[in-house]
Amino acid sequence: MFETSLTLNDLMFMLKGAGVTLMVTFFAVTGGTLMGLAFGVIRAQFKPWVTLPLAFVLDIFRSVPLLIQLILANAFQAIAGYGISPFVTSCIVLALYTAAYCTEIVRGAIAAVPAVTRRAARSLGLTWRQDMTQVVFPMALRVALPSWIGLTLGVMKDSALVLWLGIIELLRASQILVTRLQEPMFILLVAGAIYFVLSFPIARLGAQLEKRWKEND
């Protein structure tokens, strides 16, 4: 018969960690998406050489492992004496990391809108802004959504790395319990299940939206 020392209190401890995971993910994805939108539009609208410095900086965030970014950023803010909490530091680093990927998703999606469609919009007297908001964004959204959902789910899992800054999120909470209860298999199974429960609605939402749009195509 299966037995475990995991109590309801322990489970609550894990769920509290899951709450932190959700919060870090929420701030990172919200901030990263807003920045990614702005940077993506800039990358799509201007000539490549104009946006070269921006592309270079974003490439750094995409190429350096997230763990190194987190540790360096935390160490830097400590040395500089900014007094930023590890939670805020984590959110900022993850947001920039998300923005770096999101920029390319947005740029690619805007580029996927046919030039003739945009020309038709402008020829009707729509301004650049109206063309963007009424034609380009709605069309680009359909292209970008699957990649954006993937990015969001990826960031949620990558957010586990913030445990290295001493933040007790879901994985760190599980580790603590593993050390105490010595039941790694079961506890990690529970942690995995919680990650799945967090991710599933987002993945489903994406699938639902895609299905609805597909009916029109």
Binding site: V116, R119, S123, L126, Q134, M139, W213, N216, D217
Partner: peptide
């Protein structure tokens, strides 16, 4: 004042036929 129609079909695919036609009168 100047309407133009191009060789390539360039409907706005995310809008219905009616919405395609009302977009510019409403926004512009």
């Amino acid at each position: 004042k100047i309407g133009i129609v191009f060789q390539q079909f360039n409907a706005f695919p995310h809008l219905t036929v009616l919405e395609n036609v009302t977009l510019a009168p409403r926004k512009v």
